[in-house]
C-alpha cells in the first residue's frame, strides 16, 4: 500500500500506521482544536469592546494599531517562550495557556483592526439617521454600527482562525503543539507518514473552520448583499 516511493524505497505514507493510531489522532485533533479556537473566542471577547472604544475615542486607534502590528510581527515561537515562566511547559492543564495566551494576542492583531474597519464601514447616512432618530452614542454603536460591522469582523475571524490552527503546531517545539507533535515525531524517526497525516488533518481543520464561519456569516447577516463579500 504505497502512495509513492521516497528515497530508499520507504513509502511516503504507510496506511497501516494510520489505522493503528486512530485513537491518538482523535485525541490530538481535539486538543489541537482547543488550543487553536479558544484564542479566537477570547480574541473576539477582547477585540469587540476594544474596537468599540477605538471607534468611540479615535485617538486610541493609532497606538492600538501600532501594538497590533508589532504583535503581528512576532515569531510565534518567541511569544510562546515568553509565557513559559507563567504557565509552564508541557501539554494539558495550565500549560495549555502557554500556547493559548500568545495565540489570543495574535488573533487580536487581526481582529481589532477588522472590528474598527467594520465599524468604519457603516455608511455615513446610516450613522446620521440613527443619531437624528434619537440613538445615543452607546446605543448606536451596539444596535446599529456593530451589527453592520459583522461581515468585516467575521472576515477577520476567518483569517485569524486559519492562522491560529496552523500556528498551534509550532507549539510542538516546546512540547505542546496538538497535531504538530507528530511533525517532530516523524522528523526524528525519518518517517514521513505522521508528518503528512498531521499536515492533512491541520489543513482539513482549517478549511472546515473556515466553512463554519462562512455559514455563520450567512446566518447572521441575511441582509448582506450576496457576492459582495
Amino acid at each position: 500500500m504505497t502512495l509513492a516511493a521516497a528515497d530508499g524505497g520507504e513509502p511516503l505514507i504507510r496506511w497501516d500506521w494510520i489505522g493503528d493510531h486512530t485513537g491518538q489522532l482523535a485525541d490530538l485533533t481535539a486538543h489541537h482544536l482547543k488550543l487553536a479556537l479558544l484564542p479566537i473566542l477570547f480574541g473576539l471577547v477582547v477585540a469587540i469592546p476594544l474596537g468599540l472604544l477605538c471607534a468611540r475615542w479615535r485617538w486610541l486607534y493609532p497606538p492600538t494599531l501600532g501594538v497590533a502590528n508589532v504583535l503581528y510581527g512576532l515569531p510565534s515561537l518567541a511569544l510562546f517562550m515568553l509565557f513559559i515562566p507563567y504557565f509552564g511547559i508541557g501539554s494539558g492543564g495550565r500549560a495549555d495557556f502557554t500556547i493559548i495566551v500568545p495565540l489570543t494576542l495574535f488573533s487580536l492583531s487581526v481582529l481589532v483592526p477588522n472590528v474598527v474597519d467594520g465599524l468604519r464601514s457603516v455608511p455615513d447616512p446610516v450613522r446620521q439617521a440613527a443619531t437624528a432618530m434619537g440613538f445615543g452614542t452607546l446605543r448606536r454603536l451596539i444596535q446599529v454600527e456593530l451589527p453592520i460591522a459583522v461581515p468585516v469582523v467575521i472576515a477577520g475571524a476567518r483569517v485569524a482562525a486559519v492562522s491560529s490552527i496552523s500556528l498551534v503546531s509550532v507549539g510542538t517545539l516546546i512540547g505542546n503543539g496538538g497535531l504538530g507533535q507528530l511533525f517532530v515525531d516523524g522528523y526524528s524517526r525519518d518517517f514521513t507518514t505522521p508528518i503528512i497525516v498531521s499536515c492533512v488533518l491541520i489543513i482539513a481543520l482549517a478549511l472546515i473552520s473556515d466553512g463554519v464561519l462562512v455559514a455563520a456569516q450567512r446566518l447572521l447577516t441575511p441582509w448582506a448583499r450576496r457576492g459582495t463579500r
Binding site: A132, V144, P147, I148
Partner: peptide, 29 residues
C-alpha cells in the same frame, strides 16, 4: 436624544439600516 425621537427626519440617501428588515426599519423610533 429624547428631542430627536419626537422629530421625524428624512435624508437624501434614506440612511436605512441595512441589517434590519423594512418593517423593523420603519418601527425604529
Amino acid at each position: 436624544a429624547r428631542l430627536r425621537r419626537g422629530i421625524g427626519y428624512v435624508i437624501q440617501h434614506a440612511g436605512l439600516f441595512p441589517h434590519r428588515t423594512i418593517v423593523d426599519n420603519i418601527a425604529t423610533v
